[in-house]
């Protein structure tokens, strides 16, 4: 467990970017998430950990209403982004998702060129006025995703032709290009090899300076490496939420301790 060094970086805990209160999720009859309260702070990487099926991904998908695409899902409770309830009737999930971006478990580049993949978000949201601006956004996003140097000579090559780690960074670039305020990452490294994982983790830390990042992960080491705050989910309950260092070194709940020491999971 000696790789579980706690990130001793400065934690900025000024404001809550998103607040969740009493969130319940049902999939049909199945009560998947029970009464969750979480504050996502700006400029922070928040990790959600917990065993499979504990509801951490479900909760992540509530944060940008991706659960809307699942016909049987029902979300109760209140989630606010900058003080506005995102489940308000007047809220268009499309606008919400432009502000709360998402990166998925498996790299899912569109079957288009690298350039088109990154330009997709800015195009649909009309973020740029002309081609030059778009080019700039694409370049900037690829640089932020630490992919620019590898692909700058072949922006017209299909995104699906990249290696797994490159694909995932392309997906991150794609999400970054929309300039979201919060970036949700659903186990972004689970399909990657250790080297690619290291690259993506490094990237996550870079991204923290501009976005709130929320990452769901299976790996406690990863949570410990990249996050400042950690939430532990178990059987649909939020068991414990706090500073990553505190959760890993001094968990308050016995269940958290069992999980961290490998007795449940």
């Amino acid at each position: 467990m000696n790789d579980m060094r706690i990130a001793d970086r400065k934690v900025s805990t000024e404001t809550a970017k998103m607040t969740a209160r009493g969130v319940q999720v049902y999939y049909g009859e199945n009560h998947a998430l029970k009464d969750v309260d979480v504050d996502i702070l700006s400029g922070t990487v928040t990790a959600f950990i917990g065993p499979s099926g504990c509801g951490k991904s479900t909760f992540l998908r509530c944060l940008n209403r991706m659960n809307d695409t699942v016909a049987s899902a029902r979300v109760l409770g209140e989630i606010k982004l900058d003080g506005e309830n995102i489940y308000d009737k007047r809220v268009d999930p499309v606008t919400l998702r432009a502000r709360v971006g998402m990166v998925f478990q498996k790299p899912n580049p569109f079957p288009k060129s690298i350039y088109e993949n990154v330009a997709y978000g800015p195009r649909i949201h009309g973020l740029t006025r002309n081609k030059a601006e778009l080019d700039e956004v694409v370049e900037m996003s690829l640089k932020r995703a630490a992919l620019w140097n590898e692909v700058k000579d072949r922006l017209d090559a299909p995104g699906t032709g990249l290696s797994g780690g490159q694909q995932q960074r392309l997906c991150i670039a794609r999400a970054v290009a929309t300039s979201p305020e919060v970036l949700l990452m659903d186990e972004p490294c689970s399909a990657l090899d250790p080297i690619a994982t290291a690259q993506v983790e490094e990237l996550i830390d870079e991204l923290r300076s501009q976005f709130s990042v929320v990452i769901v992960t299976h790996s406690m080491q990863q949570a410990a490496r990249v996050s400042q705050r950690t939430a532990f989910f178990h059987l649909g309950h939020l068991v414990e939420y706090g500073e990553t260092g505190q959760i890993f070194t001094n968990p308050k709940d016995p269940r958290t301790e069992s999980y961290i020491t490998g007795r449940i999971g």
Partner: peptide, 14 residues
């Protein structure tokens, strides 16, 4: 690695 100065806050037209 990245050029942070290129990033500004959310686009104006949002």
């Amino acid at each position: 690695m990245t050029d942070a100065s290129m990033h500004d806050a959310a686009p104006q037209n949002r």
